[in-house]
Each structure stands twice: as C-alpha cells, then as structure tokens.
Design a protein around this nucleic acid. Structure first.
Length: 479
RNA sequence: CGGGGCGUAGCGCAGCCUGGUAGCGCACCUGGUUCGGGACCAGGGGGUCGGAGGUUCAAAUCCUCUCGCCCCGACCA
C-alpha cells in the first residue's frame, strides 16, 4: 500500500492538487488535450455551487435563458478590444455537413456578442429595461497551459448579461453582482475573498471596468474566483443596442456581464484541502455526513446496519445530505481514509460498542485524528450534527482567513515587497501606471490582483516608483 | 510556442545501455480468515510495449518520423 498517501502540499503543491482531483473522483482527463471530464462527485459539487448562485441571481431579479454555442465569426470582430483579446484563443468551425462554410463559426469563448445581437432586437424602449439574463453553459478558449478545473479548454460557468438605461444603473449592477460573488464565496464556500477593481491590463476584453474577487490558495498564490464587468456602451455601440428614452431620444444601452466558473472548484480544493485530501465546506459538500458501520460477526452487521440506516433516515429527514458506506470487503480504516480523501465534512462511526452505549463516534474532517473525534448520544443526533456542520463551516472560513492574513504583508519598501510576494500577498500603494505594473511583474512575477474596494488609507507612495498614490493594490503571484 | 520530463495491464513502475518474443507492486475477480485508522493468505483474469516506417533471422529494446500527456516559462476565467 505504498502509493496511498498523497504528496504533501509542502513537497509538491501542484502534484498534490492533481492527485486530489483524480483520487477524490472530481474529474478526469479527456482524450483531447486540456479538456476535462467532470465526474459525478465533482459535478454534484458544481451543482451545489450552481444552486447557491442561482438562488442569489433569482433573488435579485435575474432570469435564465440559453444562447447558442456557435457564433458567426464576424460577431466577434465587431468590438475592437474584444476581438483583440479573444482571437488568439478561438476555436473555429469551418466545415458543416461536409461542406466548407461560407462564414466560419466560432465556438463561443463568452457570449457578449451573440447576446448583444439578441438584445438589439429585443430592446426598443426604456420600458424594456433593464434586461437581466443569465445563462449556465460551457465556453471554449484555446488555452496553452491547462490544469484540471483551473484552466481547461472548455469550462463550465454562468455568464450574466444585463442591459440598462444609464451608466449608474449598469455600474450598480456590476457592483451588486460582485458582492453576490463575494457573499457566495465567503458564506457558502468559506473562501475568504477580496473584492476589488482590476487594473487596465487585466481588464476583460471590451470592458470599461472589470471587478473581481481574489482568493489566496494554500500555496500563497492568488486565484481570480469570479469577475464582473461594466461594459459601458462598447457592445451597445458594436451591436446597436438602443432604446428610446422618456424624452423620445434614441440612446445606447449600458451593458454588464459577470461570470463564475468551475475554476471555483479548484479554489475550494486549494483553500481548504490538507495533506489527507479534500475538505469540503458543509454547505456545498455533496455528502455532508458519511456513516461508517463497524462490525465483526453477521449478527453485529445486521444490528449495526439497521441502526445506521435508521440514523441515516433521521438525518435525511433533518435535511442533512448523508450516506452510509455499506461496502463489503473494505475495512473501516480504509473507509475513514477514503472519505477523508473525498473531503466529507463529518463522519459518523457506529459499531457494537456504540449500540451498547447508545452513542456514536463523530469525526470532524477539519480536525485530523483524535482531536476531531467525539462521542455523541444517538438521541438528538440530527440536531447535534447540524450544529457541528455549521461549526465546521465557520471554522473553515476562519482558518482560511487566518492563513490569508498571516501571509499578507504590508511592505514598507520594494525589498520587503519582493519578499512578501514570494510567499503570499503584498498590500501596497501603486501609482497606477502600466509601466510600474509591468516592471513589478517582470521582477517579481507578481501582479496587481485587484485594487480592493475597501481601502484603509487615503494616500501614500508607489511601492516601486515612489510617486504619490491614492490607492493600494493587492499584489501576488497568480494562477 | 520555447525549455525539461515521460509514454510498457486500470494506476505506479522495472526491463531498453548490452535485441532472443514481457515482469513487479497496487487495483480488479474467486474462496477463506479479518474488520473501532489504509488487513492477510491462496488462486485467477487482464498487454496491438503511444503510433508509423526502417535495420535485423529476430525489436519494448537500435534508427527516423510522428502523436499525446505532465512540469517550468510567455498568454488567460
């Protein structure tokens, strides 16, 4: 049993990640380079992410729809910076039904253009606004370097697209969706994120303003976990999305778009996972509780299974996502490790000794070994389990936040800055010039992840050039 | 696309240097003993050695080309 242990995160973070994805059966490699098969367990996690987000979208007035996968190439070319940004990574269909197509079709890398086309047809009057549509789909971007969940040629996401009468409304929408992403990340995924504005160089192709939520992974690197764009009137002008205002004047709409992808699964893995494997936040875990029955004889087995199933049913009735592991031929010890690899937040062990005492053993995934184990009476178990799951959820967030804060420095000078971004984030004033940004990246591999919306000081000097500056950025090496 | 590494059973690898017709561990199947932290014994199934071409009596092994994957860089959610 030599190969049962994962490499530790300290040894090889990248390999640790790859193996968790494969061994927890979240995803597998596809026959096409850079593509991913999302396995049922990974998809179940994604479905829970979808539900948590979709709920929030609906609550803020958005509706879902579906737009086509294939887009006329000319559409992509209508918005200048959009085509410049995306053309290198487009997959293009040139043959259909055995015939060369008159106009090649691109497989959507994102849907601003096709949606712009539709919105232009649908919107006539200010009375038609705002339009608040989201779609759950997959998109294709021909990336050079891929990694399961974090960057694949095809990835699953949601993309929201809205149209408004004024800049202010569009900006409010952009910021609202950013807040929704942050709320989701923190309260559902227990992933602490920093919400902020992107620098010009990191802006979405075709956006006036891009906002993002940024999280710190277990190796100190940053991951952009969701983005929200104020597209200004760029796409409205490219696709002629116009409305007649109250005064009878024809105006261009103001549009937004925002997306969060299966990359977020990668964030959950890298934020919470430990050297035993995955740790899933209870609110998103496909299985929140696993019951492992322990027995020797057939008679014990019957009794233990019976008790385990009753317990399972009581937990289901209490709204807990629970399953019993009734596999034959594997030892309890194996099952413990197996479910720890898969990140199940709470394990219930039940055996003959527990039946005799009317108790069970609970083992928390977030606290390895004895420390996380406790005896619990079978009476009132569902309530106790719910409480513990909430406690785990909170503990994961606290731990992740502490880790991030411990690895976030406020360097006084450029030397300290360089040291800080070796291991984590640096929170530093930046003059805003692309030159300084580029030079910092060249010298340290770190980039401005975002300029946080929550600023703590009103002015200082740029960490590189020393010019007066009014905003601090979060710098770090990014995935 | 540049640099590096690797393709041999589902997974991890040995064999290759020095050609002789494929092996180990894990996993899988069967039976038995086990079972409160990754069990053990016995038996068994599974391979176009990434692909194509070449050299040779004979190629996993030598030569040429090719495809793919992983890691590191440049670009990105």
């Amino acid at each position: 049993m030599a190969d049962q242990k994962l490499p530790t995160r300290a040894e090889d973070f990248s390999e640790w990640y790859n193996q968790i994805v494969l061994r927890a059966e979240l995803a597998d490699y596809a026959p096409v380079r850079g593509c991913m098969i999302v396995r049922p367990y990974g998809w179940a996690l994604w479905e829970n992410i979808q539900q948590a987000l979709d709920r929030r979208f609906k609550a803020t007035g958005h509706v879902n729809a579906a737009f086509p996968l294939l887009i006329p190439r000319s559409f992509i070319e209508k918005e200048q910076s959009h085509v410049a940004g995306f053309s290198p990574e487009l997959a293009v269909v040139t043959i259909g039904g055995g015939e060369k197509l008159e106009e090649p079709l691109v497989i959507r890398p994102t849907s601003e253009t096709i949606i712009g086309y539709a919105y232009a047809k649908w919107i006539q009057s200010y009375r038609d606004l705002p339009v608040l549509i989201n779609q759950w789909n997959s998109v294709v971007r021909w990336e050079l370097r891929t990694k399961l969940f974090l960057r694949t040629l095809e990835f699953f996401w949601q993309e929201g697209h809205t149209a408004h009468a004024t800049f202010d409304e569009a900006e409010a929408e952009t910021r609202q969706m950013l807040e929704i992403y942050a709320d989701f990340a923190i309260n559902e995924a227990a992933v602490p994120v920093i919400a902020g504005r992107k620098s010009a160089s990191e802006r979405f192709a075709g956006a006036d303003q891009t906002y993002s939520i940024e999280a710190m992974m277990g190796d100190g690197k940053a991951l952009q976990a969701g983005t929200s764009h104020n597209l200004g009137q760029n796409f409205a002008k490219a696709f002629n999305i116009r409305y007649l205002d109250r005064d009878g004047v024809l105006q261009f709409c103001w549009t937004t778009s925002w997306g969060l992808s299966t990359r977020f699964v990668g964030a959950i893995i890298m934020v919470h996972g430990d050297d035993q494997g995955l740790i899933l936040p209870p609110r998103l875990a496909p299985t929140q509780v696993v019951i492992v029955p322990i027995y020797k004889t057939d008679e014990e087995k019957t009794q233990v299974f019976d008790a385990a199933r009753k317990m399972r049913d009581a937990l289901i009735a209490a709204g807990v996502r629970v399953r019993t592991d009734e596999r034959e031929g594997t030892s309890p010890g194996f099952k413990f490790n197996d479910w720890e690899m898969r990140g199940v937040p709470l394990r219930i062990e039940i055996g003959p000794k527990d039946l005799a005492k009317g108790s069970v053993v609970l083992a928390r995934r977030d606290k390895p070994g004895k420390e996380g184990k406790s005896f619990q009476p079978q009476q009132g178990l569902p309530a106790a389990v719910s409480t513990i799951l909430e406690d785990i959820q909170a503990a994961l967030l606290t731990r992740a936040r502490n880790f991030r804060d411990a690895n976030t420095k406020e360097p006084k000078n450029y030397e300290e800055f360089k040291a800080a971004v070796e291991t984590g984030f640096a929170w530093a004033f930046w003059c805003g010039s692309p030159d300084c940004e580029a030079k910092i990246k060249e010298e340290t591999k770190a980039t401005v992840r975002c300029i946080p919306l929550a600023q703590t000081e009103s002015s200082g000097t740029c960490i590189l050039c020393g010019q007066r500056s009014t905003e601090k950025g979060i710098f770090g090496r990014a995935y």
